[in-house]
């Protein structure tokens, strides 16, 4: 049962994006449309799961002095392989994702899970944990992608849902939704919603304003 917990915990409560604030860069960049967001999610989940499984399988034999280099080599090889597959079988989407598939190498979630979990646990829990984190990342990306594509272009997966004014309808697309800052706002609101539900996630303030001078006096 604990294996299943590794899978479900990172979906919402321990979500890598909203709790750990990892993988933000790609979450901003690829969520202008659902198609790119979904492709990116699939690519990241596959890389994350495979790399965690491989690293976990050889965890007893990775010398600690070159630990990070070995992990990064495995992760980046997997990323290149995925990128090659996308270019061969999903060419137009890979063109739109441009460098962001390659940047999965530097996605903190992948190395983060390898370092925090896979090196200390057997392959099966590691795979579940990685899959859960990949799906948690995917969930946030798909939510953000849905909101941004719907309000920014009036479409979902490229299919028109409402008719825009440019095509003679009533819907005026929100240009802001197509720009990166809108993803910040949406992710911010999601974090707020989750932390309102699970108040233990609220971090203690690092600074306080106001009473300091009184305390000194």
């Amino acid at each position: 049962m604990s294996a299943l917990r590794h899978l479900t915990a990172p979906l919402i409560r321990e979500n890598p994006i909203t709790l750990q604030i990892l993988g933000i860069c790609s979450a901003l960049a690829v969520t202008t449309s659902l198609t790119t967001a979904a492709t990116m999610c699939a690519a990241l989940t596959v890389v994350l799961t495979l790399s965690a499984t491989i690293i976990s399988a050889i965890r007893r034999h990775i010398p600690s002095s070159i630990r990070l280099i070995v992990q990064i080599t495995i992760i980046s090889s997997l990323v290149i392989v995925i990128d090659e597959f996308l270019q061969a079988y999903a060419f137009s989407i890979s063109q739109r994702l441009s460098i962001f598939v390659g940047l999965i190498v530097t996605n903190c979630i992948v190395l983060g899970r390898a370092e925090a979990f896979a090196v200390r646990n057997p392959p099966l829990p590691a795979a579940f944990d990685a899959l859960g984190n990949g799906l948690g990342y995917s969930l946030i990306l798909l939510i953000v992608g849905t909101i941004r594509e719907f309000f920014g272009a009036g479409t979902l997966f490229g299919y028109a849902v409402v008719v825009t004014q440019a095509d003679g309808g009533w819907f005026q697309p929100l240009g802001l939704m197509q720009l990166a800052p809108s993803a910040f706002f949406i992710i911010g609101l999601l974090i707020w919603a989750i932390r309102t539900r699970w108040t233990t996630q609220i971090e203690a303030p690092e600074h306080r304003i106001g009473r300091v001078s009184e305390e000194r006096s």
């Binding site: 007893r60 070995v70 080599t73 495995i74 980046s76 090889s77 290149i80 090659e84």
Partner: peptide
């Protein structure tokens, strides 16, 4: 032992070799 020099070099070599093999095979095949 994991901090042994031979093993460090060996693991580094093996990781690089297998990774290179996988990457170049996919690249050429696709």
């Amino acid at each position: 032992p994991n901090d042994d020099r031979t093993k460090t070099l060996g693991i580094a070599f093996l990781t690089a070799f297998i990774s290179a093999l996988v990457v170049s095979t996919t690249s050429i095949a696709l």
